[in-house]
Design a protein around this nucleic acid. Structure first.
Length: 577
DNA sequence: AATAATTGCGCG
DNA sequence: AAAGCGCGCAATTATT
């Protein structure tokens, strides 16, 4: 079991922080979870007498609730245990033998329509309505911590779950820090791009010049000066009137038709999309003061990926990346993992053939070189189809070749799909499990099994079974990739903290969190990171980024020969291509 | 008038 | 050229 090699060198101590009325209660526990010390501290300095000098780890209800206050006072915390996130993992993990005590503690469930994260300024207010509803009472915090530790200890694989929980909590710290630091955003670069594409900023209520010109062209081609272009049903009717029998107005279907209206219409849709998603209003709201501050939501996706809330943080169009620009005297280190998910799959399945195809090169080219398919494009389609469960089209046709060449990797995802189709639960490498089948899903399956079931019942059941199979098929890979990425981030965060801060007199460390005076993570998106670093440290940072990727690979997969090559650039901006 | 669902498109 | 996973958001229409 490779994941067990990462045991803490010394037994950790824990420092719980909770809240009673207007005081923070800090409880120190030894490694056996026995109370060593309890003290009361002011809420606005609960971290004082902090623990950076010792090996203790903060335990708290919710990183969003506690950490922003410390960060706001320029105190960075190196390690924590987030009970809310831990609860969500342990409640569902198939590695936990008896989840009853954890599940019974429903007060630790995050209510869906009560966002776990809110806009940063409000987080500093203890009594603001952003309160998550998660307990802060010292007895309850201790009780939940003990429940979770017990669930892990009695699990089928405590080492893996401990890794997962530590990584999840490290991610929570980082999410808060990245929100505080922000991604350096060049307003002028963004504005000039908007002006080039859309025209000068219009007065409110008006369309930019280039957009209204395109709209006029489209209306002329439709022969209708008052045609509505923003209403899908009306646009569809207009298209039908000029002889375009489209069933939808999405771009690829429109592209199928040969008509003078198509090109300007597609251009119009592109521009209005840019305008409404990342136009001047977005710039004013999300990238004021030279920083884009996404609200990251660790664990926000069932698979363990991060979600985001506000600003479309994870959907920044590629061509806008050039507006990400380092401060004077600083650089960006931009790195992403090439073909993360198929590499993860190769390692999970111990598929030596797939790992060999991936080694030291583009994985898709490796598959072509092995003679499995004829072109890189085919390899890509086949691999994506294998991981997503494609059954038709080019992708579906190519999957069988992959199944012959890489039976272990394909066996793993096929098994995950079969489990899901039968209503079962699948788990990632470190033990995050998929949600169980819903009662609605079970009802559909049960109805189809009855003697008087109709053919329609059976068709519906088969379809929903396959839908669920595609979800579980992808869950194991996407979720384990998210774990790898968390391990990468956590190790990199620790490495960057060891770099020296810039000399305040010499450079431009503006105002901002204390950790942002040295190289720090500024952006994360599934398999990509951006580090903002003093120029003098950029090469060192690049090495740390690579070493952290290697460390993540070894932490998860031990000696299995899989590599995770990075596309890495040191630059002043984060432009793609 | 407020809320829900639909459509389309940006990202991995 | 295209149909298969996971998201968030804006604009519009449909529902209450």
């Amino acid at each position: 079991m490779t994941a067990s090699s990462a045991e803490a060198p010394s037994p950790p101590r824990w420092r719980l922080v909770a809240k009673v009325e207007s005081h923070a209660i800090v409880t120190t526990l030894n490694a056996d979870l026995e109370v060593e010390h309890v003290e009361s501290r002011p809420l606005d300095s609960w971290w004082h007498g902090g623990i950076d000098g010792d090996d203790a780890r903060w335990v708290w209800s919710d990183t969003n609730r506690w950490y922003p206050r410390a960060l706001g006072a320029e105190v960075a915390i190196s390690r924590c245990y987030d009970l809310r996130l831990g609860h969500a993992i342990l409640r569902d993990s198939a590695l936990v033998r008896d989840a009853t005590p954890v599940r019974a503690a429903t007060q630790w469930e995050t209510v869906a329509d009560e966002p776990a994260v809110a806009a940063a300024p409000a987080l500093f207010e203890w009594d603001a309505p952003v309160a998550t509803g998660i307990p802060d009472d010292p007895d309850e915090v201790l009780a939940e911590f003990v429940r979770q530790k017990q669930a892990v200890r009695a699990s089928t694989d405590p080492a893996r779950l401990r890794l997962l929980l530590a990584a999840e909590s490290a991610g929570a710290l980082l999410a808060t820090e990245m929100n505080a630091a922000g991604l350096p955003w060049d307003r002028a670069a963004h504005e000039s791009l908007l002006e080039d594409l859309l025209g000068p900023r219009p007065t409110p209520g008006e369309l930019p010049a280039k957009v209204s010109a395109l709209a006029a062209t489209v209306r002329e081609a439709l022969g209708d000066a008052s045609a509505s272009l923003d209403s899908q049903p009306k646009l569809l009717r207009s298209l039908h009137r000029v002889g375009i029998p489209a069933e939808s107005t999405n771009r690829w279907e429109l592209g199928e038709y040969d008509h003078p209206v198509i090109a300007p219409l597609i251009a119009y849709k592109k521009l209005t999309r840019l305008m409404s998603a990342n136009g001047w209003a977005w710039l004013d709201e999300w990238a004021a003061n030279g920083r884009f501050r996404p609200v990251y939501v660790p664990g926000g996706v069932v698979t363990g990926r991060w979600a985001s809330s506000g600003g479309g943080a994870l959907q920044i169009p590629r061509h806008l990346r050039r507006a990400v620009r380092a401060d004077p005297g600083w650089r960006l280190v931009v790195a992403d993992v090439a073909q993360l998910e198929p590499r993860i799959l190769a390692a999970m399945a111990s598929d030596e053939a797939l790992a060999a195809a991936a080694r030291d090169r583009d994985l898709y080219e490796g598959i072509v070189a092995s003679g499995v398919v004829n072109s890189r494009q085919e390899a890509k389609i086949a691999v994506l189809g294998a991981m997503y469960g494609a059954t038709t089209g080019d992708s579906g046709r190519l999957v069988p070749a992959l199944r012959r060449a890489y039976p272990r990797a394909m066996g793993l995802v096929d098994a995950a799909a079969a489990t899901g189709e039968q209503g079962g639960v699948v788990s990632t490498w470190l033990g995050r499990s998929s949600p169980g089948a819903s009662t609605g899903w079970r009802d559909v399956q049960a109805a189809a099994a009855l003697p008087d079931a109709t053919e329609a019942d059976r068709t519906r059941a088969r379809r929903s079974a396959r839908d669920r199979g595609r979800f579980t098929r992808n869950f194991v890979v996407q979720g384990t990739a998210a774990e790898w990425a968390l391990a990468w981030l956590a190790d990199l965060r620790r490495r960057l903290a060891s770099l020296p801060p810039v000399d305040e007199a010499a450079s431009a460390p503006r105002s901002g969190p204390v950790f942002a005076r040295r190289a720090h993570l500024a952006f994360f998106l599934h398999d990509e990171i951006i580090v903002h670093t003093p120029a003098a440290h950029a090469d060192a940072v690049a090495n740390h980024v690579r070493q952290a990727a290697d460390a993540a690979a070894r932490l998860l997969f031990g000696d299995f020969a899989i590599d995770f090559p990075l596309d890495l650039r040191i630059a002043d901006d984060a432009a793609k291509d």
